[in-house]
Design a protein around this nucleic acid. Sequence first.
RNA 1: GCGCCGGUGCCCGAGCGGACCAAGGGAACGGCCUGCAAAGCCGUAAAGCCGCGGGUUCAAAUCCCGCCCGGCGCUCCA
Length: 464
Amino acid sequence: MTGIELFDALAGELRPLTLREPGRVALYACGPTVYDHPHLGHARSALTYDVLRRYLEWRGLDVRHVANITDIDDKIIDRARREGRTESEVAAEWEAVYFDVMARLDVLDPHDRPRATGWVAEMVDFIGRIMDAGAAYTTGTGVYLRVGGVDGYGDLVHRSLDDLRASAGARVEVDEAKEDPLDFALWKAAKPDEPSWPSPWGPGRPGWHIECVAMSLGILGDDFDIHGGGNDLVFPHHTNERAEALAVGRPFARHWVHNAMLNIEGTKMSKSLGNYRTVVEMLDEHPLNGRAFRLLVLQTHYRKTMEVNPQLMASARAAVQRLDALARRAAATGADRDQGTGRRDEAAVDAFRAAMDNDIGTPEAVAVIFDTLHRANAALDGSTEDAPRLVATVVELAGALGVAVDAPARGDGVVDSAVEELVAKRQAAREAKDWATADALRGELSALGVVVEDTPAGPVWRRA
RNA sequence: GCGCCGGUGCCCGAGCGGACCAAGGGAACGGCCUGCAAAGCCGUAAAGCCGCGGGUUCAAAUCCCGCCCGGCGCUCCA
């Protein structure tokens, strides 16, 4: 018992998080196929599991977080072919972009980042066991899992086999060689000019789902605690992963967690609609956007489709600035002294924990943080003894969700002796009560995107 | 067609049976503070009642039924 409840997709309801091993959480989250720019949806997904991991750790649990990279797949092959490069070059390029973007979003590095191509031997072995169990068969195009033989195959999507069959092929033509349209490839026989690995069934490459089973069970072991991913993966990906594990009788994930999708201006992002947004674009647009996007993600429950648009990004930035403003005030008055001492407002901490324990209720948790922020500011105005403790609480709780609260403007590096000089000149003018000059200088700073605040401790500037 | 999820203020978004009926963020308005601002604080306005119509209940935004609208999925997909 951890006191934490999570919505479990298999059960279809809230379930207490019960761990395989007390105090330790084995978490597997499906990562991206690296063939192009990561988009905002990838970011939401990664952020969801980063927050889950951070919260579990904040609760004192020892988490092992595994997030895979799919580095061999049709899309990578297509792109490599188009660009006249090798698949591994393409994958390496986009994997690097993905990692860079994750770092800019303050996503903690998972403890393991397995690549599919590093696990092919294990996958081949796994497929062999499925074959031994009589649960799969070969055709001219590969090895297929016989879905009809898996008890409760559709349980994760809550659909019966017949139901699934009825809509199979609705969007993709069915391979006639398969025994059942639902049967899916464990191993894809090599086609000319495609990368391939040897196997008992001839050269080829692994099917998508076998990757995650081999890696999750291989790293975390049977009966690991949480399997996560986007809710678009429930079927077929997770359903098929689960089927593969079931086919060989291995206990799979104890809890299934899925994050919802992200819409832009009310509809799903897509290249054809022209509302496709990459994470790099978003991050490059404003230095505060990394934290603002995380906050935006947190303000919607992870199981609900979230909306993103420029106004929402702006409002999230404004909220981040309030966090930073508190830190500035605290630093200027010495009210930051409780940080790291463990002193904190227990009522706020309790409310935060209650919100998060209830299926990772980040919107409420964020509300608690801002409520505390408000109390901290009021305490700062009244110079009461509570201020340092409240400030420390805000910083700690925000940190537990991965939102950094920065006192001085978080450097976009190239700081600006020019700005410093203008600020100093303005201050000199103010001291001479030359308001006209002071205001003109403030105008110049404003044109540079800099806001000056006059505090009892002197002027402080930041980027708008 | 089948399945899933939604529809709460100007925008986003919590709440999912009961403290006179809605957290938090953004935007707005008034006041305090300030040389003026910014930041902050105090306060106000705004949902004639939480898509519409029924129902259950002492009590519903919260449960049930029907309808309308929207989004997503149905082996590319976070």
